[in-house]
Computed example of a mutant assay.
Amino acid sequence: MDSVDSVLGMENVDVERFIADGFIKVDQVVPREVGDEARALLWQQIGLSPDDPAGWTQPVVWAADLTGVGPFGQFMASPRLHAALDAIAGPGGWHRRGSVGNIPIRFPRVPPADDRGWHVDSNTQRADGSWGVSRRPATLLLLVLFSEVGKDDAPTRIRVGSQRDLVEVLDDDEVRDPMQMGPIFDEVGRDRAVALATGGPGDAYVVHPFAVHAAQEHFGTEPRFMAQMPVLLTAPLAPGNRTPLARAINW
């Protein structure tokens, strides 16, 4: 990565907004046409057509990029994205991903999936290799958009500032099953404002591992293509770390 591009990219990240809100949007980590190309490949992968709504019968269809080739690799190699991650997790504070991973595609005009509860993603690996949620997260969350996502297009909902609420209810040593934490997630940050992860192809969001978020029903007309992936930190987050990730939870 070019060092000048990295510095300029870091300067364009509103770190104080991330600390306050628990997430930040990064516009155009790749040009829009790269996002369009990725979306075209995903249509091919799932065997459906943007021109044939009759085939849109499921609320969610899962696709994946497991190789990082073509436009997906351009997303993962983006200097602008890398600079944003440096600004939030600190230079050298995160591991580069080679591929995008799983990509849920949400379709309109059908009954919604029952997967829209408030939650945070698993962020801590146990000794047996399984994952859960703890007060020492080893990941942050990255959202990458491959289509237009307006307010009616099932954008991810984020409770603004909820990362500071969740850290107060987690234990230092216990790794909890997020599937058993539904009532906790429902309550954490419930009085906070809700932001919508909207944007266009090529945009991304860097999200704190404790920011409570949720999917929502698709009220628009065109399918929504968005990846949601963990980015591994080089060390679990802990008090004394002075990155924006730590400052966002008052550590």
Rank of each mutant, 00 (worst) to 15 (best):
4 V>C: 05
6 S>N: 08
11 E>D: 12
12 N>E: 08
13 V>Q: 05
15 V>Y: 06
17 R>T: 09
17 R>W: 06
18 F>I: 03
18 F>C: 03
20 A>R: 14
20 A>T: 13
21 D>L: 03
26 V>D: 00
26 V>R: 00
29 V>C: 02
30 V>N: 00
31 P>M: 11
35 G>K: 00
35 G>D: 04
36 D>N: 08
36 D>R: 08
41 L>E: 09
43 W>S: 02
46 I>H: 01
48 L>K: 06
49 S>E: 13
50 P>A: 11
52 D>T: 14
53 P>S: 12
54 A>E: 14
55 G>W: 10
57 T>H: 06
58 Q>L: 13
61 V>M: 05
61 V>E: 04
69 V>T: 14
70 G>I: 14
71 P>Y: 08
72 F>D: 06
74 Q>S: 10
77 A>D: 08
79 P>I: 12
80 R>L: 05
82 H>G: 08
84 A>L: 10
85 L>S: 07
92 G>E: 11
96 R>N: 10
96 R>P: 11
100 V>S: 00
102 N>I: 15
103 I>Q: 02
103 I>N: 01
108 P>R: 02
110 V>I: 13
111 P>A: 06
111 P>F: 08
112 P>L: 07
113 A>D: 05
114 D>A: 15
115 D>M: 15
116 R>A: 11
119 H>N: 09
120 V>A: 04
121 D>R: 13
121 D>I: 14
122 S>E: 12
128 D>C: 15
130 S>A: 15
131 W>M: 09
135 R>K: 12
136 R>H: 10
139 T>G: 11
141 L>A: 00
142 L>R: 00
149 V>M: 06
151 K>S: 09
151 K>D: 09
151 K>A: 13
152 D>C: 14
156 T>A: 02
156 T>K: 03
157 R>T: 09
158 I>E: 03
161 G>C: 14
163 Q>C: 11
168 E>Y: 05
170 L>R: 02
174 E>T: 13
174 E>K: 15
176 R>A: 08
176 R>W: 14
177 D>C: 13
178 P>W: 11
190 R>I: 12
191 D>G: 13
191 D>Q: 07
194 V>K: 08
194 V>E: 13
194 V>I: 15
196 L>S: 06
196 L>P: 04
197 A>S: 05
201 P>S: 09
202 G>M: 09
205 Y>N: 02
207 V>L: 00
207 V>K: 00
209 P>C: 06
210 F>T: 00
212 V>G: 01
213 H>S: 04
213 H>D: 06
220 G>A: 11
226 M>D: 00
227 A>S: 08
229 M>W: 04
231 V>P: 01
233 L>N: 01
233 L>G: 01
234 T>C: 08
236 P>D: 02
236 P>N: 01
237 L>V: 05
237 L>A: 03
238 A>N: 02
239 P>C: 03
241 N>P: 01
241 N>V: 12
243 T>H: 05
244 P>R: 03
244 P>G: 05
244 P>C: 10
245 L>T: 08
246 A>R: 04
247 R>N: 13
248 A>Q: 04
